[in-house]
Design a protein around this nucleic acid. Structure first.
Ligand SMILES: Nc1ncnc2c1ncn2[C@@H]1O[C@H](COP(=O)(O)OP(=O)(O)OP(=O)(O)O)[C@@H](O)[C@H]1O
Length: 682
DNA sequence: CGAGATCTCGTTTTT
DNA sequence: CGAGATCTCG
């Protein structure tokens, strides 16, 4: 590693934050001001000072941001992405997972625990609530998602279920007693299954830091604690951080209150604001120069966030040369919006911009649908982030469930998935089989089980046993072979159940290839459950334009950013009613805008085609508040946004090609690139 | 008890 | 339109 000239690559404030000798430090600064840069350089600086990498803990909130952070760190240290670095880094959940494989035994957590994803835990809750709530009148029952949210919010905020209910769903306080009971059973069943859900990972980590004898180990396990995106930590995470750092006080956290967008996950902005109270000797550093975006984009961002009352006002200035004004484009409907975007993307690509430097962002993952269709039509590759992930697809989970059972045969959720795949086995039989499994000491004793079942179920059950006996003959290190055998066993079901089985077979083949690169079942299963790596090559998922939710874009940056579907039905989300909620939506808008380095396009359709006909749409209220000097407007945008700020509803002209997608279209009035004067260097 | 047929209702974000 | 809940029949 060649020496880094820290004073040269950092500005004065950044340098100060990086080289501060010891003690707590808070960097509170706007978007693109180099907060992550500070953290990454802090790591390099510490290592240069002789701190062992494994004595440094580097945390953040989302997988995407964690990957970005780790790869920037490695790049700075002169390592490749694939190189190992002894530094502890990643999301809270992934670090918790790694720790619990080692220290879990102090909490009676077996080291072969299986991680339940959100879907698994919801199914388990559904099963439990059915039993507990069935006595209540059929209709007015809370959904299992709601119950999951209440429990999760309570855990993450470190409050009781009662408090969680009061905050989130006071209308269900009447059945608090039942919900408490459901939560209790849920906990028991997870314990019996040797499974932990996402929240358990954090809760268990926290427990390690507060109970003897592990509290002493953890107080000095790391010498330096570094946290990115601190504004989005929730209470339990803040408690963990505090416990880890209180003994030595070597802690650096960075964040931006204007980018707090995870309150639904119990993120608490108070954590960053109160940091100086919790660490009284803390140094506070502000960064006010934006190194990411053109002055035009920074001006827009400043104007967007200025409408929020609850914030620390910051003075953020771009240090870059002037560029282009962001553009606001209205289109007549959602199809023409998609076409506009695809045109523009093609244009940028033709100008030599690499696809990975182009991102399209949206509020909800399904907003990308029209654009995906359009990109597919034109053969433009894209990478989809958000929505149903690869490892969440039903057929992938079916196959993985077999591996989970091999790893931990008590995992109820996996049996619940596997058994009903067989003819004649349903809810009841599955329950019966699972409960008799508790007599076993190991999966190898499966043959010794005698369960009385109906004739049909019994034939299937024999098949299950035979299938698992075969799987047990394969070494657990041979993940590719294991998956291929499960695929063979699963294939009949797959083909009879789905018309798109070819696609699904391909997916499974991808899974087998991905798994072959691993040789540790525990590691593989955790990685998959935590979705740490998402880039399993599915065909159109290679080297493409990025389509992402705004949430997952946080902390990332691209040369060109498109923000689509900016209508009153999407941003702010219509369920957000209170001023507090609207302010969070505005922060989301701020995050989206500040991802762009040089080119920013905001678009919205004036009508949308849906299953029940078409609906007219209004532009987002966030757009009408903006000073018109900040944006270039296209024709429709000018009239519709102005109409809205005058309190008039803008009615779009009817478009003839609206109902017949495949009819030849009139040529686009605006040539691609019309709004784009000149592209100099990227 | 399981499986296939029929009905109902719908907005979001992640680990 | 389509996922999930509910109904019905063998
Ligand atoms: N002193 C600097 N000199 C040159 N480039 C810098 C400097 N500081 C930051 N940058 C660049 O500015 C961009 C934004 O930095 P970074 O991602 O660290 O900001 P951030 O504050 O973490 O942003 P966000 O709040 O959006 O997560 C990066 O490309 C980074 O390399």
């Amino acid at each position: 590693m060649s020496k880094i000239d820290f004073a040269k690559v950092l500005n004065e404030e950044q340098y100060q934050a990086v080289t501060v000798k010891a003690g707590p430090c808070l960097v509170l600064a706007g978007a693109g001001s180099g907060k992550t840069r500070v953290l990454v350089h802090k790591v390099a600086w510490l290592i240069e000072q002789g701190v062992k990498p494994e004595k440094i803990l580097l945390l953040t909130f989302t997988n995407k941001a964690a990957n970005e952070m780790m790869s920037r760190t490695k790049a700075l240290l002169g390592l490749k992405d694939a190189d190992r670095l002894a530094l502890w880094g990643g999301t809270f959940h992934s670090v918790a997972n790694r720790l619990l494989r080692v220290y879990g035994r102090y909490l009676d957590i077996p080291n072969n625990f299986v991680i339940l994803d959100s879907d698994d835990s919801k199914s388990l809750l559904k099963k439990i609530s059915k039993n507990i709530l069935h006595s209540l009148d059929k209709k007015n029952n809370p959904s299992s998602s709601l119950i999951q949210e209440v429990i999760s919010f309570a855990t993450n905020s470190d409050i009781s279920l009662n408090e969680s209910l009061q905050i989130k769903f006071p209308e269900w306080l009447q059945i608090e007693e039942q919900i408490v009971k459901i939560a209790e059973m849920y906990k028991q069943q997870k314990q019996k299954s040797g499974t932990l859900d996402f929240d358990d990972l954090l809760q268990a980590w926290k427990k390690l830091t507060t109970t003897t004898p592990t509290d002493k180990i953890f107080a000095n396990l790391w010498e330096y604690i570094l946290v990115d995106e601190y504004q989005d930590t929730n209470t339990i995470q803040a408690e963990i951080i505090y416990n880890l750092a209180k003994a030595h006080q070597n802690i650096l956290v960075v964040g931006d209150d204007a980018q707090s967008i995870y309150s639904f996950r119990a993120a608490n902005i108070q954590n960053i604001l109160d940091f100086p109270k919790i660490f009284p000797k803390c140094q506070i550093i502000k960064l006010e120069k934006n190194y990411r975006s053109s002055p035009e984009i920074v001006s827009l961002a400043n104007a967007v966030i200025a409408d929020n009352v609850n914030q620390f006002a910051k003075n953020l200035q771009s240090v870059l040369n002037p560029g282009l004004k962001p553009e606001l484009i209205a289109e007549n409907n959602n199809f023409s919006e998609a076409k506009f975007l695809a045109d523009k993307i093609e244009y940028l690509l033709s100008m030599g911009l690499v696809p990975q430097e182009i991102a399209v962002l949206f509020r909800a993952s399904h907003h990308s649908q029209n654009l995906e269709i359009e990109l597919n039509k034109r053969g433009i590759n894209y990478e989809m982030r958000g929505g149903l992930k690869f490892f969440e697809r039903a057929h992938i989970k079916d196959v993985l469930a077999h591996l989970k059972v091999l790893f931990n045969f008590k995992d109820q959720s996996s049996w619940t998935r596997i058994l009903p795949l067989y003819e004649g086995i349903g809810d009841m039989t599955e329950g019966k089989i699972y409960s008799s499994l508790s007599q076993l000491d190991s999966l190898a004793d499966l043959n010794n089980l005698n369960i009385s079942l109906s004739a049909k179920a019994d034939i299937s059950w024999s098949q299950v046993k035979e299938n698992f006996n075969r799987l047990l003959n394969i070494s657990q290190e041979n993940l590719g072979e294991l998956i291929r055998l499960v695929m063979a066993q699963y294939n009949d079901y797959l083909m009879s159940q789905y018309t798109d089985y070819r696609q699904r077979q391909d997916d499974l083949e991808q899974l087998a290839i991905f798994a072959s690169a691993h040789s540790d079942l525990a590691e593989f299963l955790s990685e998959v459950s935590l979705q740490e790596k998402f880039s399993v090559g599915d065909d159109k998922n290679k080297a493409g334009v990025i389509l992402s939710t705004i949430h997952q874009a946080k902390g990332l940056e691209w040369q060109a950013v498109f923000l689509l579907n900016l209508t009153s039905r999407s941003l702010p989300h219509p369920l957000c009613q209170t001023e507090i909620e609207i302010e969070e939506e505005r922060r989301l808008f701020y995050v989206a805008v500040t991802r762009a380095k040089r080119y920013l396009y905001l678009s919205y359709p004036l009508s949308e085609f849906r299953y029940d006909g078409y609906k007219n749409l209004q532009p987002s209220i966030f757009l009408s508040n903006l000073d018109s000097n900040l944006l270039n407007y296209n024709h429709l945008a000018r009239s519709s946004v102005y109409a809205q700020s005058d309190g008039v509803e803008y009615v779009p002209e009817q478009n003839n090609d609206f109902y017949d997608e495949d009819k030849p279209k009139p040529k686009n009035k605006t040539k691609p690139g019309h709004f784009l004067p000149e592209i100099d260097e990227w």
